[in-house]
Design a protein around this nucleic acid. Structure first.
Lengths: 238, 238
DNA sequence: TGCGGGCTTTACACTTTTTTTACACCCCGC
DNA sequence: GCGGGGTGTAAAAAAAGTGTAAAGCCCGCA
């Protein structure tokens, strides 16, 4: 099982807790990135595309429920909430806001670890097996956020990379405008299709030999975009 | 939002707890089926294909961990464990065995409800199934909006696809002009039958070997159109 | 404070799809 | 054979959707 370590975003303001969690988690083989407030956390989701978020409810700048809701507009990434509050009402509010699990302090690192694994197990299934995606001349290292065309590295901006990742995750299948817009810009920009035109244009300019006749980044008029694959057989029904 | 109530399988031996849960859950609009031991529970998973399982760890015939493991071999259905044991080690074992969540008695029905919703929310999203319709040389992937004739993909416009979908939904049966017009163009265009002639013509041109003598897209004069079938195969891909 | 990269906005040309328009057909009763 | 309802085809005009270039904005950073 050659699986790259999952990338976990830890949003927690308390330095000490953060240090403890970082040690306990990276020790188990996960990669950790950190934010000490809600705004920075949301920004890191956009820029680093983590596999899971651990969110402390008691942040200095925003309350945890708002962070959760905002986050859900951006992404379907699994969220585990940490909190000192054990009242049922708090748990219900957090879970209803879109969280996947809720763990009350104090907790054992063993339980945290098991719950994280349960969440990742459920969401990872839909993710690519390999962290390096290759088709034709295009190569994308999802873990290192690097893109190559004919073995030359291409500079890619955060938004371009997120769009490309979404297309790769469903390689060969159409991804609707709605889905791409919702996942990258949030639910409130679901009608701003010009964003997609701009960014798909930029990606084509960087990745296609002839941007006017794309080989990889295909358009499905009126529906969405699709990453074409030649060396993988996607037979429909057998 | 066309959502059918989720079907929940409750595996719990204690009559009283079962009654309590059944009341609290069906009250919230879920459909419940029950089993009072592990063997019966596993059988019901096979037979009823529920959306979620609530499993009590303390069953008379098998221990909960074994039930969970066995269940995971059968299905990827989400599992929430109920248990009187709150020791961390029990939780870890259950989660590692494949459970998705672990709730310790006593618990509030509000929290249970919120956790169930969180689980269903996640699994509904991540288990896409694409339906594929096949008859003769014609193959239509309804989820991917792709159409093939003799294994060659055919470019299909949005309106063409909608008409084709309607015909497939009632494959073998006549679909009236009224119904097609109403569903695609809205009730106010119910007399614009020339639209249908144009689009059925386009579809025949793309799908039929000899558009003048259609094999799939049949006309029922004065009534409507019909998708001819010899053998319907609607299966799930992947 | 100015620089630069990336994001957003604007404008316009281009392509595909939908709608409109026009006409030929074919089977039937008269 | 003649005419009319219902139908099929082929083009156009109109509308919608898409691609590209460029300018302005914002924010982190020196």
């Amino acid at each position: 099982m050659n699986e790259t370590a999952a990338l976990i975003l830890l949003i927690e303001d308390d330095e000490q807790t953060r240090r403890f969690l970082k040690g306990s988690l990276s020790h188990k083989g996960w990669r950790i990135i950190e934010a000490d407030n809600g705004k920075a956390g949301l920004a890191m989701i956009k820029n680093h595309n983590p596999d899971l978020v651990i969110l402390d409810l008691g942040l200095p700048d925003m309350d945890g429920i708002s962070v959760t809701k905002r986050l859900r507009q951006l992404s379907e990434i699994p969220v585990l909430i940490l909190s000192a509050r054990s009242q049922e009402q708090n748990k219900i509010m957090a879970l209803d806001a879109g969280a996947d699990d809720y763990l009350t302090k104090p907790f054992g690192s063993g339980e945290l670890h098991a719950r994280l694994q349960a969440l990742l197990r459920r969401t990872r299934r839909t993710m690519p097996v390999s962290e390096v995606f290759v088709t034709g001349l295009l190569k994308v290292d999802l873990a290192q956020r690097k893109v190559f065309i004919a073995d030359n590295e291409v500079r890619i901006t955060p938004i371009e990379f997120r769009l490309l990742s979404i297309l790769i995750r469903q390689a060969g299948l159409v991804v609707t405008h709605r889905q791409m817009l919702k996942e990258v810009w949030g639910a409130e920009h679901i009608n701003d299709q010009h964003y997609l035109r701009i960014y798909m244009g930029q990606l084509r300019h960087k990745l296609e030999i002839n941007p006017a006749r794309p080989r990889y980044l295909m358009t499905d008029v009126g529906v969405g975009y699709r990453l074409a694959i030649d060396d993988v057989v996607t037979e429909l029904a057998q």
